[in-house]
Simulated scan of single mutants.
Amino acid sequence: MTSVDKPTPEQAAAAADQKAVTQAALFDAFGGIRGTLETMLPGLLFVMIYTVNKDVKMSAIAAGTVAVLLVIVRLLRRDTVKHAFSGVFGVAVGVAFALFTGTAKGFYLPGMIYGAGLGVAFTLSALVGFPLLGVVLGPVFKENLSWRTRNPGRKKAYTKASLAWGIIFLAKYAILFPLYWWGDATQLGWLLIALKLPPMVLAVYFTWVFLAKAPPPIDVFAEMEAEEEAERARKAAATGADRRER
């Protein structure tokens, strides 16, 4: 690489800042390590109890109780609860299905349908040019939907990332659904736990790679604040001119 090709110190610092901002935003959007573990714990507890005593009702109640306790702990500590609430909602639906069907597979089915649906949604959104990940992460980066028309480099990155999420999710549930129909409930539960974290980590990693190399986001909130400040300055100037004329 020649000296012309090498990035300047300013460019290297800007690239490092962009990677750090992207990493922080992704942690915020997806709940980080703690949020991921909290979503895993109720399902893990369900599988462990069911493996030991095959009692669907006890397993479901224990999973639901833990999910609620996790939300209460966050509320008491005044932490953000958006990921905890989404997790407890998913567990509640799974508990309802398990108690209604009387089978352990009923606990897993809503989450599997939801995950497969997300895989389809991510894939289709990327193919039609309106990547779902951009809709999700746009507010996190304070760019909203500006990437669609004003930042083609980020739109391309969001498209690649959304396609990666879609492919990873669809591959995951292509493995799980055959086991749901023809396999053992206990085996399905443990496989679900095993496949909970690795695909998510892989999808987030691809998202980080694509977005870290993309142009920086356009801060539409800062633009709006600047426009409001300029408008106030114009009104103040106009008011001052009127007073001088009088």
Rank of each mutant, 00 (worst) to 15 (best):
A25M: 12
P131K: 09
T159M: 09
L211K: 02
V71F: 02
M200G: 12
G138D: 00
A230Y: 07
G138A: 01
Q18T: 13
A214Y: 02
I193G: 04
A60R: 06
P42S: 09
V209R: 04
K172G: 06
A236S: 10
G166W: 05
R78Q: 14
I167S: 01
V52C: 03
M40C: 12
A14D: 15
A126C: 08
L145F: 14
A104D: 03
D17N: 15
G138K: 01
S162W: 07
L195V: 03
A24L: 15
P215I: 01
D79N: 14
G129T: 01
R243C: 01
Y180R: 08
L195I: 05
V201A: 13
G166V: 10
K172T: 13
G32D: 11
V204S: 02
M112Y: 07
R74A: 06
W181R: 11
G138P: 00
A237H: 13
W147V: 05
P110H: 09
A67I: 00
L195F: 12
L179T: 08
K156D: 12
D55T: 11
M200Q: 15
A238R: 03
K57M: 15
F85V: 15
D242E: 11
Y108P: 07
L176A: 06
Y158F: 15
P131M: 08
V52Y: 10
F46M: 08
T39C: 15
Q11G: 03
A62M: 14
A241Q: 06
E245V: 15
E38H: 06
A104T: 06
R154P: 01
A233F: 08
K213P: 08
A25H: 09
N151H: 12
A116K: 10
I168F: 02
V120Y: 03
T207L: 05
R34H: 13
K160I: 11
F130P: 04
A241S: 10
L197H: 02
F30D: 02
W147K: 05
F206S: 00
I33S: 14
M224Q: 11
W182A: 14
F89K: 07
I167R: 08
I168P: 00
V91C: 04
T65P: 07
R243Y: 07
A212R: 02
V47I: 07
M200P: 10
V135I: 15
Y50Q: 04
G166N: 11
A15K: 10
V88D: 01
L145Q: 06
T207Q: 03
G106Y: 09
G166K: 04
E227Q: 11
A24V: 11
K213M: 10
A174M: 10
F85Q: 09
V73E: 05
E231A: 14
P7G: 04
T22K: 03
